[in-house]
Amino acid sequence: MRSASERRRGYRYWLLGAVLCTCASAALTSDLYVVCNSNVALRPADVREVFIGEKSFAGTVRLTPADNLAAQATFLGRVVKFTADKYASLWTKKAFRDGANPPLVLVNDTEAIAYVRQTPGACSYVEAVPPTGVAVVAKF
């Protein structure tokens, strides 16, 4: 039979392990911020629609989304729920069917922030905490 103090110690080890696991997975899962130009008012629920070309306007403002290559895999998995292949295929078909243009492709957070800050209607996503001068419309 284990004594009460040994059982408590055992629980503590399991608790410690659980905390470590949680911390480890939190460290692996970074936040993703969807940012838009300050003239854009967008609901988090609309973000997916914007990037798959189903929503082109926020009020009277024409939206011009841009993909951020450095964070695209995370964004597609977490927000659009598409693989990169399916996303590319969707835009090929959409362009051919509707004459729609796919989002611009930017390389990293710096480019995405600069583009969003300077382009009316622009939206993109970044992994680093966004600086001032852009509107954070959602965090995933």
Binding site: E6, R9, G10, Y13, W14, L16, G17, L20, C21, A24, S25, A27, L28
Partner: peptide, 17 residues
């Protein structure tokens, strides 16, 4: 047993990471 529990847990964490 407790030591093994702890070691196993740490290995699990290491594996996850």
């Amino acid at each position: 047993r407790s030591w093994w529990s702890c070691t196993a847990m740490l290995l699990l964490c290491a594996g996850l990471v």
